[in-house]
Amino acid sequence: MNASRSLYNDAVEMASYAPLFVNTNDRTWNPDAIVFDSSKVYGTPSYWMQHFFRESNGATLLDSSLRSNPANSLIASAITWKDADSRKHLRIKVVNFGSNNVTLQISVDGLEVNSLQSLGSTKVVLTSGNPKDENSFQTPNKIVPIKSQLDEVGDEMDVVVSPHSLTSIDLLINSNPIRTMGSNSVDVSFY
């Protein structure tokens, strides 16, 4: 599979998820994001998935390509965005629909040498052993994002993507990361 996206900016004013709330005593269908009763509340996996997209406001979608063999069921995209401290990040989001770990080889082109920083670069994974698992009042944190530091960050790197998962790889970029001569874009390839 070979997918490519062109570079463009997209400003999202607001995002909404519907239906957002459901009372556990009046649950007529299951796409709700937040379940509550008179004394407790928990977020569903759909609620936590929305957290992966909250920084996309004003983000730049990057050229990216995914080369996958038929045994891998992956979808990936890449954006750049700034956090609350105005630090720039390269975010790679990967969905693994398959039932096996996949080692994703990431290649980044268009940044200055050594512009990706290990300190501050993270990997966040939302997954469960069974794709039909849900959170509940008894286990409200059964499926929640798990954040970890990335130890080895570079223009070429391998990242293991868990089965049945949504993974966000956030790479912190030095303050002046994009080349000023030639192309003013960043390309990300996944193998």
Score class of each variant (00 low, 15 high):
Thr167Ser: 10
Asn23Thr: 01
Glu112Cys: 01
Tyr8Lys: 09
Gln138Met: 04
Leu90Val: 08
Asn72Arg: 04
Phe52Ser: 07
Asn30Leu: 14
Ser6Ala: 04
Thr122Ile: 08
Val188Gly: 04
Leu171Gly: 07
Lys82Cys: 14
Asp37Asn: 15
Met157Arg: 00
Ser77Thr: 15
Val125Asn: 05
Asp187Ser: 12
Thr180Leu: 14
Phe53Leu: 13
Leu66Thr: 05
Asp83Val: 12
Glu55Gln: 11
Gln117Val: 10
Met1Cys: 10
His51Ile: 05
Val113His: 08
Ser183Pro: 03
Ala84Asp: 13
Val188Asp: 06
Val161Gly: 01
Ser128Thr: 12
Asp151Pro: 00
Arg5Val: 13
Ser38Asp: 15
Thr127His: 11
Asp133Asn: 11
Tyr47Asn: 07
Arg5Thr: 11
Ala76Phe: 04
Ala78Leu: 02
Asp133Phe: 03
Met1Thr: 13
Arg54Pro: 00
Val22Met: 12
Ile173Asp: 00
Asn174Phe: 00
Met181Gly: 00
Thr167Met: 03
Arg91Asp: 10
Val94Pro: 02
Lys82Pro: 01
Pro31Asp: 14
Trp29Glu: 08
Lys40Thr: 06
Asp155Met: 10
Asn135Ala: 10
Phe36Gln: 05
Asp63Met: 07
Lys93Pro: 00
Asp10Ile: 04
Asn57Asp: 09
Val102Lys: 02
Arg179Asn: 09
Ser162Thr: 03
Asn25Ala: 15
Thr122Phe: 11
Gln50Cys: 10
Ser64Phe: 09
Thr28Phe: 15
Gln138Gly: 07
Thr80Cys: 06
Ala59Thr: 09
Asp170Thr: 04
Gly110Leu: 02
Lys142His: 10
Val95Ser: 10
Ser136Met: 07
Pro131Met: 05
